[in-house]
């Protein structure tokens, strides 16, 4: 089977598991919603202007926190019953496995971010002004979701076989996602019109996140085999 055929099947399998278990819907989405509400408490007054200004950053912070939970879930699925070993014994190409899990995770992140953006609009009184802004936001969500999914799958795979992985993953991953967090936040600010930066600059940030996504997905596909081969 080609790498892409493997990737498609792995992604389909992960999404089917998600559709049946509803972990994203029943646990991760409520978790990210609670995080958004807690941000409002931490920022003192939900009625002041501060939450509105920082809402784009909150969306992406909540995404990153939820991502940590999701990665553990995505790899727990493979670890239980030795599924990962079975896949490797079956000769599934690591690159296909990586891409498949990345795609599955990216789709779930996309769903999560749509909810978080709506929550930001409702809770923090932000708005997406116009079609151009909506386009920018949509591209941001897709590109940043891909970047986060790539990094998450890579480090999730690294930590999957190790003891103490649950505590190690955030330490490894959070410093790495800084460019995504910054870039996605800036372009979301442009789309929300809260950060005082224009649409052009917003697109420049999306390009940076896109470069990051290409590196993370490409590098992950190359390195994943060596990480699992243990």
């Amino acid at each position: 089977m080609s790498v892409w055929a493997v990737a498609r099947r792995i992604a389909a399998k992960d999404l089917r598991i998600e559709a049946r278990s509803r972990v994203l819907v029943n646990q991760v989405l409520p978790f990210s919603g609670v995080v958004m509400v807690l941000f409002a408490f931490a920022l003192d007054k939900a009625s002041s202007d501060i939450p509105r200004q920082v809402a784009p950053g909150l969306v992406w912070l909540a995404t990153v926190f939820s991502l940590l939970v999701m990665i553990q879930r995505v790899f727990a699925v493979e670890r239980d019953d030795g599924a990962l070993d079975a896949l490797r014994v079956a000769g599934v190409t690591p690159a296909g496995l990586f891409l498949g899990k990345t795609i599955g995770l990216a789709v779930q992140l996309l769903a999560l971010d749509l909810v978080l953006v709506v929550l930001a609009v409702i809770l923090f009184d932000t708005a997406v002004a116009g079609l151009a802004a909506a386009g920018l936001l949509a591209v941001t969500v897709v590109v940043a979701g891909t970047a986060l999914a790539g990094v998450g799958t890579l480090y999730g795979g690294l930590a999957a076989g190790a003891k103490g992985r649950d505590t190690l993953l955030p330490l490894l991953m959070l410093p790495v996602v800084v460019p995504v967090l910054i870039g996605a936040t800036r372009s979301t600010e442009a789309a929300f019109g809260t950060g005082g930066i224009g649409m052009t600059e917003g697109w420049a940030w999306v390009a940076l996140v896109g470069a990051f996504a290409a590196l993370a997905v490409g590098g992950g596909a190359l390195a994943f085999g060596a990480l699992l081969e243990e």
């Binding site: 410093p175 800084v178 940076l208 243990e230």
Partner: peptide, 28 residues
């Protein structure tokens, strides 16, 4: 060898990541 390969890969990721982090923080 497991430790060596795993940590060498992480070191390689760091080499790729740090310029990107620096660039993005600089623009920030």
């Amino acid at each position: 060898p497991q430790r060596a390969r795993r940590s060498a890969l992480v070191a390689m990721f760091a080499v790729v990541e740090i310029p990107l982090v620096h660039f993005s923080v600089q623009r920030w």
